[in-house]
């Protein structure tokens, strides 16, 4: 006798018993909540976001045309150097991008300094470079002292205020080998690199703070996980109730 496909047939979408029907409806509800909670929120983030530049990018945008045409004044060069140093201060930068930024920043520093300042500062930078190459640990007193002295002298020349964290970074990014000339690829690649690191996708969901977090971060890193545990708990409670209702034993 030929077997009928419909004999003893199980299909999630075509339940044949009241228990299976109730289970299917419960699963559909839970999966729908799960999908909307995870992917719906990320889609909402995507739809609401706007490219938002950091303050450093605005400084870069205003100074870049003059720097590019080699007509920048001292203030524009300082803005430009500060903006590139902001990117160099970020924890992760692609090695190729860093090379471009190093060149742009150091060339700008060189242009900012007058002849007297160059005579005073460049030998000191060279000394620090030599010391940096020699040390085994960054806590060596001579190195720490030289770094602090260089920072104290160079930061005011670039207009970096006392409280700014870029002061700490400044001595480490000064590089005499990059000061003499600006490479063509630097001019070509720099705008894209600055945009890459200084323009971010932000919206009301990222700007609103909740328990100290940016809201979107709290939602994804904390709240979604709470929801997952809750959904699992809810399913187990509901499955136990369904089994009791339909007198089904495991």
């Amino acid at each position: 006798m030929e077997e009928n496909r419909n004999d003893y047939h199980i299909s999630f979408f075509k339940p044949t018993t009241p228990r299976a029907l109730a289970n299917r409806n419960m699963v559909i509800w839970l999966v729908s909540i799960w999908v909307v909670a995870i992917f719906g929120f990320q889609i909402a983030l995507r739809l609401l976001e706007k490219p938002t530049p950091e303050a450093a990018y605005k400084s870069f945008e205003s100074s870049w045309p003059s720097v590019k045409s080699n007509t920048a004044n001292q203030e524009e060069l300082k803005d430009f150097a500060g903006a590139t140093l902001s990117v160099l201060g970020k924890v992760f930068i692609d090695a190729g991008d860093k090379a471009v930024l190093d060149n742009a920043f150091n060339r700008a520093v060189y242009q900012i300094l007058d002849e007297g300042q160059k005579e005073a500062l460049i030998p000191e930078i060279k000394n620090f470079e030599a010391l940096k190459a020699e040390i085994k640990v960054v806590t060596e007193p001579d190195y720490v002292k030289a770094k602090k002295e260089l920072m104290t002298k160079a930061a005011p020349l670039l207009g970096i205020p006392e409280n700014n964290v870029l002061r700490d970074i400044l001595p480490l990014e000064l590089n005499t080998a990059e000061m003499n000339t600006v490479r063509p690829e630097t001019m070509k690649q720099l705008p894209g690199i600055m945009e890459k690191y200084l323009v971010h996708n932000q919206s009301v969901l990222t700007n609103f703070k909740f328990l100290g977090f940016p809201f979107h971060y709290f939602y994804t890193a904390v709240l979604l996980l709470i929801l997952f545990v809750f959904l699992c708990w809810l399913y187990c409670i509901s499955a136990d109730r369904l089994n009791k209702k339909f007198d089904i034993s495991d």
């Binding site: 983030l45 902001s86 970020k90 870029l166 890459k196 971010h200 996708n201």
Partner: peptide, 13 residues
């Protein structure tokens, strides 16, 4: 230094 790229979604950085 300010680092919004750490928390902002699908940041280009």
């Amino acid at each position: 230094a300010p680092s919004p790229e750490y928390a902002m979604p699908w940041d280009t950085a």
